[in-house]
Each structure stands twice: as C-alpha cells, then as structure tokens.
Design a protein around this nucleic acid. Structure first.
Lengths: 354, 354
DNA sequence: ATTACTAACCAAAGCGCTTTGAATAGGCAA
DNA sequence: TTGCCTATTCAAAGCGCTTTGGTTAGTAAT
C-alpha cells in the first residue's frame, strides 16, 4: 500500500493525502477524517525510507558504543540504560540504531552517521573527563545528549547526570559521622567522569571531617565482580584494614561481600558497606530491608529520560542546552549499623533539575 | 557530494559511476579505477536512504527485544550477545536496529520492520519452547536466525544453539559419577527453550545413573543473583539438603555461593558446584584455576557468529536453513572436588555443526 | 563491404514520499 | 455582476540512488 494507491482509492491527490496524514492545516477536517480512517482501515504505513529521503530526517537515534580491548562499554549498566531509552524510542516512533565501534574509528562513525542522514541525534554514553566526542559533535552539528558530564569540557552542552559528587560525599560523610575512619573506596575507572566525581566527593567529605584520605584504600578499575573481590581482599589483608567500604556499583559490591565473607567478618557488623545502586533489573538490591545500604538512582529511568530529552532537542531544533541533574536516593540496608543516629544534614532527594 | 555531482565531475553518467562503484562488469577497468579513485578522494558516500529506497534493501538488521513486567530480556547475557553481533555488523557495513517492544506488540513490531523495509533480517533471541515468532517470520518471509531453538517447532529454520542438553547431561553425570546423589538445579525459566533443554539433560543423566530426580531440588526462574541465593538458601535449610549445585548462569551462581557461605559450608568441599558460564565480559569466571567448574561457551562469540550467519542468509537469498550447534567446553575450577577420576566418556569439545 | 557482436557508456524511468507553486471554487464586499 | 480572499485541492518537481532499455563505436566474421 503506497501513498499513491491510497490517494487513488480516495479520489484525492497524493499531496492532500500526505498533508492530511501529517496534520497540515490546509486540509478540510472532513477530508482529513476520511483519509485517516481509510489509511487505518487499509493499514497504510508510509515507507520510512522514502520519507527519509524526501525529508532528510531519519526518525532514528544513534547510540555509539566504543569498544576497546580494555574498556568495555557493554556492561550490565549499559544494557539497562539501553532498555530504558529503547522504551522511549518505541513509544515515540523513533528507531534505535546501535553502533558498536572500535575506539579508533569513533570519529568516523559519528561523521558517517550524520553525513549519511542515518540518525537525527545521538546519545553519548560513558563520557570521560576529557571527552573529545563533545567537541566533535558540536562541530558536525548533530544533536546529542550526554549521559553524564565531562569535567574537562567547558562549553555548554546537553546532559543528564546523577549528582555523583554529592552522592559519594553524603555516603562518605555518613560513614565518617558514624565514627568510621578507614573507608575503602572501590571505584570505577577514574578517567571516566562519573568515577572521578565520585572520588572527589569521597575526598571532599574526608576534608570536611578532617580525616586524611589513605590512597592505599582507594581502588579503581572496571566494575566487575572480580575487581570488587580482589580489591576488598587486598585491603582486608593489609596491616590497617578498612572498617567500611564504599563501592561504586552492585557487581563489585557482590565481589567485595564475597571477600568479606572469606575473611570471616560479619557483613554489616564487623565491616560496613555503602554502595551505589543503579537499580539494575538483574542485580536488584533485594530483601527488606535491602541487603546493601545504598545511594540509589535507576539507570533505566535515566535511559528513558535521556531519550526523551534527546527527542525534545531534535524536535525543537534549538541548540539551547538542556541539563538535568538527579540526586541519588539514600536507602538504608543491612550492610551498615546505626547510621541514622549520625543524622545527616537535610538533602533534597527528589530528581530535580539543578 | 551526490552521485550526480561526482558523475558530472568525472564527465560520466550516473549510471556508469554507480556501476563502477558497485562492481558491475559493464564498466571498463580503467574507468572503474578512475571513478573509485575520485570517489575516495572526494570522500563520496552514497546516501543510504536513497539506496534503500531504490533497492528496497536496508543494509540493516533488527534485534527485537521483548519486554514484559516479568521477563526481562535485557540481562547481562543479552548485552554481551549484542556486543558480539554488533562487531560483525560494523565490520560488514550493516546497521543494527534495536527494537524494545512490549510483548503484546511484538507481532506488529516484526510486521512493520519488514513491511517498511527497515531491516533485511532479524535475530530472534530467547526463544521459548513454543515460539510463535518463528511461524510469524516464516509467514512474512523475513530472513531470520534464532539464537537457540524452539522444541515445539517442527518446521525447519535457521538457528545457532549451544547444546544445552548435552552440557547439562555431562555436568550432571560428572557429579553423579563422583558419588553425588542430591544435586540442586538452579535453572532459568523453563518455558524458555534453553532452560527446558538443560532440565532435560539433568533428568536424563539421573535416569542413566538410576538416580531419582527430587523435584524439591529443582528451582527455575529468572537468572538473577537473588534467585540463586534464595533457591540455594531454601534447599540448604531443608531436611535433606543437596550436596552439589548445578547452576544455569554466573549471576545466580554468585548468589548460590553467597548462600553456601552463610551456611558456613566450605565451597568446593562441603558442597560442589558446576555452572554454565557464558563467559560474560563483566562476570568472568576468574582465577586460575577458575573459581567455578563450568560448562563454558561464550555468548559473545555466539552473537558474532549469529550475525554472520544471518548476513549470509540475507545475502544468499536462499531459504535453505543454516543450523549450528555448539558444544560447551568443560572447565575445571575450584568449586568441585576430584571430578576427573570419575572419568567422563569422550566428548567432542570443539564448536561443530551438528 | 556488409553483417553481427560485444564492450562501454548513457538517458530516463522509477523507488515512495514531501513540498512548491498553481489552480479551483465558494464567500463576501463593492 | 465583478473582483478579491480564503479555503481546498492538485500537478509536478524533487530527494539521491538503481536499473531498464537503449545507443555508439569498435571488432570479428562472412
């Protein structure tokens, strides 16, 4: 069923039918109704490739996933994010084009996406502190939204980010207020912006409490289960082991807990733990109260919202940046003792624009 | 830079340039060289939307991800699979279109993918025992490849699958041969085909060893960490606890290990465990020897290969099904005692077509 | 020299949409 | 009645490619 056929059937021109279907004003209401009804009855759907060619718009959004031998973007967090974004795209009639690309071909990948009119915009995931993709995208003029931020980038751009600094500052402060003095940090790779900010928050809380940071307690790498296990194990077997852990994600937290168990320590008693919980669908912080005391923010929701913002950016065509900063929510679990008594200052836990 | 411009610049017709670029024979070699060189110099790239419209082919492949409130396809296994497939697509110049779709809209999603010429083929993931998608795709005539199989489907179709039956039969037999008599099975949802086959393998080994299956030892659900923990916990606290576990995936295995620890049992000594290991990039079976004794098969490799087969299917245009069955590889780890002495019969461990 | 091919190239017709520039008809003021 | 507006509708020209159906010139066969 093509537009042409539909038009012939209705005894109208393609122009009119096209306009009726696309909501243009110069079509009488009665005609529009007739057209829409008939189109629906015949299950007419415009050929998107023809539309794309004619309009130059693709109704598609790209996610470019860099792969390196070392730094895999394809982690459980990523897939939850994608699922969230995918929901939005599906609802809004956009297509999600996924590009798995070697880091060395990244620039090329973005360029060809825009040159070829394959996508109308892209989501940038896993930004580093120095993120070359931002300048690149600004230069080629492709609408984009960054999930996260890039500290080293001082131009304005659109982003959605969890307030990582604040989350880790709060968590650290909570532990320090409760008298903990040796807090092991099991963090993501600190050239990635989110991990850097978390580290800063951790440092900052120490500073406010006049406690010196022991860098022997700071581990940072890809957030695998094994990394969590290994770093916890090393810290625990040292002369001055930590009495609490702050862990950047559920996976390493599971590993750290394993190490704790192997040392015969009572989890939540002998040693405390606060984690950052992305609320992954396959790695839920389960139980009631939940196992882990956590700073929580759903990465799936973030994906959903990132997609929304990007579409808004694309549709409005304006280059005015949209920025949204979310606050993680504190969830009390069984991995810490009495934290509440060491009351923390008021915080706004809602998801708010900054 | 359009074809037209390039042709004008070269003093040739669009026809000739197009043919030169696409390797048609009716162009002289000298002309072809000139055209190709010039195209490269000017960085000419055909507009894919125009190509798609003209040819009806999209140079894109779809992955449709069903979401339900209960059954999330978006798990770590899925994302590794996608990463593998994505590599192949990138290499072959195909685009990966991801569709996150509510189960109820699935049929529609597939239909519109093909009707609209959005993709040239699709990969079907997570097939159930009764998998309606297969008949649907056969009916609408869209090339497809199933990752896994559907027991209830008796028509011929293309698939790539790990030999789940064999893997679990072997693993179970190993445990039984070593004298284990109560083997807890922590399986995926058994309406999904892979889990069903694994269960069959488990049953079958029991039968050959004349050991009765105790259904109180068989758990089956979404393969989360918590599910692994909870089912192991329940089994361990029963009157007749298992002495070994067979676990369907790394995530529940981690949970099961946690439960084992909580019961004060020595992992690999008081209780044995064999897992199925998809070799996930973020959940590696690390250590040497590795932590878990495992039946191992990389899901990322599977993704890579699935994509290759699908492209082959698309390009050949033939409807002759391609089927490939892989054998999981047995990896000895620290989660079992002496298994080797209980020698298993010879098996071909290579990845082979059936 | 004529015919018959073949090799190499080209003009033009699509693919199915959007959009520009007109055309038509009806309504209303002059 | 005429003229002007507005509300509808349409024909046709793209969008940038592929492909059909030639045409032309050169070569081989008769």
């Amino acid at each position: 069923m093509t537009l042409r056929e539909l038009a012939d059937l209705l005894g109208l021109s393609q122009t009119t039918v096209s306009r009726a279907l696309n909501g243009y004003p110069e079509v009488s209401e009665s005609t529009r109704k007739r057209v829409v009804a008939r189109a629906k009855a015949l299950n007419y759907r415009p050929n998107p490739n023809a539309t794309r060619l004619a309009t130059g718009r693709s109704q598609a959004v790209g996610h470019v996933i860099p792969i390196t031998s070392k730094n895999e973007m394809v982690n459980p967090i990523f897939s939850d994010f994608l699922a969230g974004a995918g929901e939005t795209y599906a609802r809004e009639g956009y297509q999600l084009v996924l590009n798995v690309v070697r880091e060395s071909h990244m620039e090329d990948a973005y360029r060809s996406l825009v040159e070829q009119g394959t996508v109308d915009g892209v989501v940038v995931q896993g930004p580093r502190m120095e993120e070359p993709r931002i300048a690149l995208l600004q230069q080629i003029g492709l609408p984009f939204l960054v999930h996260g931020r890039a500290t080293g980038e001082d131009t304005e751009y659109s982003w959605l980010d969890v307030d990582n600094h604040c989350a880790f500052e709060r968590a650290t402060a909570l532990l320090l207020s409760a008298g903990q003095r040796r807090i092991g940090l099991i963090n993501g790779q600190e050239h990635l912006d989110f991990a850097f900010r978390r580290r800063c928050g951790y440092n900052s809380a120490h500073r406010s409490h006049s406690v010196e940071v022991d860098t022997a307690l700071c581990y940072s790498d890809e957030m695998t289960e094994y990394f969590g296990y290994e770093s916890a194990r090393r810290m625990l077997q040292s002369d001055q082991p930590p009495t609490a852990f702050l862990v950047s994600s559920m996976l390493p937290a599971i590993g750290a807990r394993r190490a704790v168990g192997e040392f015969g320590l009572q989890f939540g008693k002998d040693i405390w733990m606060i984690i950052f919980d992305d609320n992954l669908s396959y790695l839920k912080n389960s139980g009631s109260p939940p196992t882990f005391t956590a700073m929580k923010s759903s990465v799936r929701d973030a994906g959903r919202r990132c997609a929304e913002i990007l579409l808004q950016l694309i549709r409005s065509g304006s280059s005015k940046p949209i920025q949204e900063r979310w606050q993680a929510q504190l969830v009390m679990g069984t991995s810490t003792g009495d934290l509440v008594s060491a009351k923390e200052p008021d915080h706004d836990h809602a998801n708010l624009t900054r």
